[in-house]
Amino acid sequence: MEHFPEAWGRPRNDIYGPYDHSYLQTTGPKAHTQSPAVTGTSVIGVKFNGGVAIASDNLASYGSLARFTDVKRLRVFGDSAIVGFGGDVSDMQHIDRLLNSIDIRENYSSDGNLLNAKNLHTYLSKVFYKRRSEFNPLWNHILVAGFDGDGKPFLSSADLLGTTFSAPHLATGFGAHLAIPILRRLFPEDTPLENISKEQAVEALRECIKVLWYRDARSLDKFSIATVTKDGIEVKEDEKVEAQSWAFAETIRGYGAQVN
């Protein structure tokens, strides 16, 4: 007879072994995120004459499962900056709330937005660096698009380690492998920005998103694309990859069961 009522209805100790309470532990070392859970894939961005264009698909994956298919990963800050998030979605939401509270505090003074995209990037990179230094990283790789203090187009990257860099075109995740070569070919790095129009930049990003949809298994054909110019921010969040052609797939050899 088991005399302890709290044990009644439990698997028998003599067969299943004692109950493992370890998951209820409240003492001991604090566990931090050691790997991301629900993740977004690439974010891509390119500077053009008078602004910056940025795009990402609308998928949040849970490992190889396409878990959420309507996730907006481009976040608008104020009236002249956009943050594109790759990596963990819950950490993205955390940062989004952080940005929200900053934006509200910005509005306390009537002078309007004091923080430009460059300031925002500096701030976010320090948030990332601080968290990585506490061994409690925010598992993201982000692009920040907008303008710097001189009103010049600004595009810069920051990641979970606090690493930052800037270039005329940037991409996170798989995009760094697949989109960057396309963008570098279309707009060589010594191209003056004046020679790249907004339409060209947007078209190039759409093309990159299509290639990513073809070749990145954790991607989606529904995506968001946004531009920042002096006239403001334009965001389209329900775009679809148009004019798909899977003819190339027939030519792929060597990865599956093939007869020839």
């Binding site: 299943y16 061994f135 990283p137 690493t163």
Partner: peptide, 24 residues
């Protein structure tokens, strides 16, 4: 033995932890 469906303990547990550095 018994009714246990216990996980084989010999399975290699993949060590995955956050590494705070990278080489640029």
């Amino acid at each position: 033995v018994g009714y246990s469906f216990s996980q084989p303990t010999s399975a290699p547990n993949k060590e995955h932890s956050f590494y705070p550095y990278t080489d640029n």
